[in-house]
């Protein structure tokens, strides 16, 4: 079996093409997810349950009072809606990969990812999807629309600002997620960190103003879940000026750069699960 044109000829060839790699990864991730048909429907059911579980306490609170930290029921719905949207993206596209990478580091598949001539961060972040979580995105839209029905529809500017903030918030959360992965290179057992991240991110479902000073800063900068939930809602309500929006986006870009830098460093000290 002659290697066509000798080995050198091959390694100097065109190399992996990004669109091709991405579509191959997406195809495999989807096939993997659809292996378990039952899971697809159970996830849908779980997702709907989640929406109810988030709205119920809010309904109980607003059953007793009209305003919480300056937010009405309709306005809080916007926060919940954006929170659900972020959960859908994180749960559908990001978190399944967290599990896969942590598992891969423990069992050695990470070695094989690192051996591929494709950016390891890209492969590590795109090996799994949970399509059923995307249903949550749909319910998120419904909840946002419900909230806007009460508060009145904003103009083009606030909607654009909210949309950009939502993207920035999700990107900031992804960066945080990547930092957790970096930790797992040193402390192999980080399952609890996933649990923690989920628990802290849960705090983003309420308007960030209910938290006292330190906690509010924490939820905006350290675990920037408020950036993805409260801030877009504030943008829709016209409570943010343009400078703040730009700052938030700059901060999340900075977070992304930092996360990528940490990832590169983590790879350098990777010890590889001994066989």
């Amino acid at each position: 079996m002659p290697p066509a044109g000798g080995p050198e000829a091959l390694s100097s060839g065109p190399g992996p093409r990004l669109p091709e790699v991405l579509s191959a990864l997406a195809r495999v991730a989807l096939m993997n997810a659809l292996q378990y048909r039952a899971s697809f429907f159970v996830d849908f059911f779980v997702g709907s349950g989640n929406v109810v579980a988030i709205l119920l306490p809010l309904a109980v609170v607003f059953g007793k009072t009209d305003s919480v930290a300056g937010w009405t029921w309709d306005q809080s719905l916007l926060v919940t809606g954006f929170f659900l949207m972020m959960s859908a993206v994180m749960g559908g596209l990001v978190e399944p990969n967290l599990g896969a990478v942590v598992e891969g580091i423990r069992q050695g598949q990470m070695d094989y990812i690192l051996l591929k001539p494709v950016d390891a961060q890209l492969v590590a972040s795109a090996q799994r999807v949970a399509p059923a979580k995307l249903w949550d995105g749909l319910s998120a839209l419904v909840v946002i629309a419900w909230g806007l029905h009460g508060t009145g529809w904003p103009g083009f500017g606030p909607i654009t600002a909210a949309f950009c903030l939502m993207i920035a918030g999700v990107m900031a959360m992804y960066s945080l997620w990547l930092l957790v992965i970096c930790l797992s290179f040193w402390f192999v057992r980080v399952d609890n960190l996933r649990y923690l991240l989920g628990a802290v991110a849960d705090a983003g479902r309420w308007p960030v103003d209910i938290y006292s000073g330190v906690a509010r800063v924490f939820l905006t900068v350290v675990v920037p879940v408020a950036l993805a939930s409260s801030w877009p809602a504030m943008a829709l309500l016209g409570r943010l000026d343009l400078a703040l929006v730009v700052q938030a986006i700059a901060v999340s870009l900075g977070g992304f750069a930092f996360a990528r830098w940490s990832w590169k460093r983590a790879l350098a000290s990777y010890t590889s699960a001994s066989s």
């Binding site: 992996p16 195809r27 591929k116």
Partner: peptide, 16 residues
């Protein structure tokens, strides 16, 4: 969970 062929196809794309 997938047939080996899928892994082969993925590697094909990743190695270009």
């Amino acid at each position: 969970d997938l047939p080996p062929q899928e892994s082969f196809a993925l590697n094909r794309a990743m190695y270009g």
